[in-house]
């Protein structure tokens, strides 16, 4: 293992984050606060509690997931796309470093950043609502697994993208709708029966549901299914990444 290389990629990526501290950290905090003001206080005060959980608190896991998914994808995709775009990828490709080590550096940094943002959101949220975490270990597991899995997805998108439009395409057109329709702001029980069934095909629903269960022990689907969904996601991403590395897809001709 070339640990020095993993370390410098990781540190370099984290430095990029801290250099753009305002965009990286402040913007998710501000947008989360806005969600709380609008949905939690303004609208939420007129919404009854869901399964005994106040609407404001009910929102927290959903909002965290929304940020984790979009942040993980955009960080990891940008992290690997940018060297491709400006050409500095030559150095990584010509260094004595394995694909796994490249992955560890980039995905590790993107996941770390998402973990930091998620934690900040949780802390911010605690100023607005009372939060209790019923199953801390499960909560942390879902938290970490989601960050890692979606950073992997971001890495895939970053390699696949050959322009900035493509880089934005998946987060905007796929992830945001899936998160919004995946029960981040509501329980699917509130939907008409037909839409409830359709929602079950949304993979993000399982993530949010499982994560919410670890907080409040309320969920749309059983926690086992949620865990399975994260595992399937994780292995699907790993399979795609290893195929990309094996074929040199869009990295090495």
């Amino acid at each position: 293992m070339n640990w020095h290389a993993v370390k410098v990629i990781y540190v370099n990526e984290m430095m990029r984050t801290f250099r753009t501290l305002a965009q990286s950290i402040a913007s998710p905090v501000i947008s989360t606060s806005l969600y709380f003001v609008v949905f939690g206080s303004a609208i939420g005060s007129r919404i009854e509690s869901i399964d005994g959980v106040s609407y404001g608190a009910f929102l927290v896991p959903g909002l965290m997931m929304l940020s984790l998914l979009t942040q993980s994808i955009s960080n990891a995709s940008f992290g690997i796309y940018f060297p491709k775009f400006i050409g500095t990828i030559y150095e990584i490709l010509s260094a004595p470093i394995s694909h796994f080590e490249i992955l560890l550096g980039y995905v590790g940094a993107a996941a770390t950043k998402s973990l930091i943002i998620g934690t900040i959101i949780l802390i911010t949220a605690s100023f607005f609502v009372d939060i209790r975490i019923a199953h801390p270990i499960w909560m942390v597991s879902f938290f970490v697994l989601t960050c890692v899995t979606f950073s992997l997805l971001g890495f895939i998108i970053g390699i696949w993208a050959d322009n900035f439009e493509k880089l934005q395409l998946v987060p905007l057109l796929v992830i945001t709708p899936l998160v919004f329709l995946g029960g981040s702001f509501y329980s699917i029980d509130m939907l008409p029966p037909a839409w409830q069934t359709i929602s079950l095909f949304n993979p993000v629903l399982y993530l949010i549901s499982g994560f919410r269960w670890s907080f409040f022990e309320v969920s749309d689907v059983s926690v086992g299914w949620s865990l399975l969904a994260v595992a399937v996601f994780l292995f699907a991403c790993l399979a795609v990444v290893s195929w990309m590395f094996k074929t040199g897809y869009k990295m090495k001709s």
């Binding site: 290389a5 410098v8 060297p83 400006i86 050409g87 500095t88 030559y90 150095e91 990584i92």
Partner: peptide, 26 residues
């Protein structure tokens, strides 16, 4: 390898980018 194009990260500092290269090569 010194590539033909001036491919460098604009925001990196000189000593950081040299240390980065050193690390990449183990």
């Amino acid at each position: 390898l010194v590539p033909q194009e001036l491919t460098l990260g604009s925001f990196d500092r000189v000593s950081d980018t040299v240390n980065f290269s050193r690390g990449l090569f183990g």
